[in-house]
Design a protein around this nucleic acid. Structure first.
Length: 225
DNA sequence: GCGACAG
DNA sequence: ATCTTGTCGC
């Protein structure tokens, strides 16, 4: 997959990283996803060698045929510490390297983390989506900031995530009896479409298939075969 | 100053 | 994320 040229270095201090987020967030675009969106790439990462190297993996999933189209992965040295709010500086390099290996052109990308539901409105889904120059949304397992009411306990139940008087995402119930997942826009997408897509990609598990399968795959690469 | 804090 | 077994509940 052909990617846009690099926009910035990855070796920088947390302080400069925050400044970069403030500068790049204005470039994030809100667009509705094409109605025929079916091929979704889910991405996830895992660490190896005592947290020295990071493995990123994308699993391209077709929600119409409910099958995996392609898988791609890459391994990179870890160059940034884990700092809440700066996750992309730790995982994006590996995710972008893996994305370049894809032969398929996904309709949209889904990440294990937040997009707009971020203190500076620039989570990893915004950052990676912007650098990929493609539609991207975030589907996180826990909240980074904001609060929400309890969503109805049935698939599709939802409640807005509020932060500083602003609706930044949706707490979406994908499975009865399970904690909701947190959906927010990354780049070239709208919240309503992101929620519909996440729900359309769900197959009985709490996490949507693209992200769920990416987690299984990256774990397999890390430990098992 | 105190508590919270994606993966 | 990662270190780790069994166990409670639908």
């Amino acid at each position: 997959m052909k990617l846009p040229p690099p926009r910035h270095p990855w070796s920088l201090s947390p302080k400069r990283a925050i400044a970069l987020q403030e500068r790049l967030r204005s470039e994030v675009l809100h667009r509705r996803l094409p109605r025929g969106t079916r091929v979704v790439a889910g991405g996830d990462c895992a660490f190896v060698d005592g947290g020295t190297r990071i493995v990123a993996c994308w699993v391209v999933w077709n929600l119409a045929t409910e099958s995996v189209v392609e898988t791609a992965s890459a391994i990179r040295p870890v160059r940034f510490p884990y700092v809440p709010g700066l996750l992309s500086f730790r995982e994006a390099p590996a995710l972008l390297a893996a994305a370049r290996k894809l032969h398929t052109e996904p309709d949209a990308f889904m990440l294990d983390g937040h997009g707009l539901a971020h203190p500076r409105r620039f989570g990893i889904a915004c950052h990676v989506g912007l650098l990929l120059g493609r539609p991207c949304l975030g589907c996180a397992k826990s909240l980074l900031c904001g609060a929400h009411d309890e969503p109805a306990d049935l698939p599709g139940g939802r409640a807005p995530i509020l932060h500083r008087e602003e609706a930044i995402g949706i707490a979406l119930r994908t499975r009865a009896g399970a904690k909701p997942v947190y959906v927010s826009v990354g780049h070239l997408a709208r919240l309503g479409d992101a929620v519909q897509l996440a729900l359309a990609c769900t197959r009985g598990y709490r996490l949507p298939e693209p992200t769920r399968l990416a987690h299984i795959e990256v774990t397999r690469l890390t430990r098992g075969g």
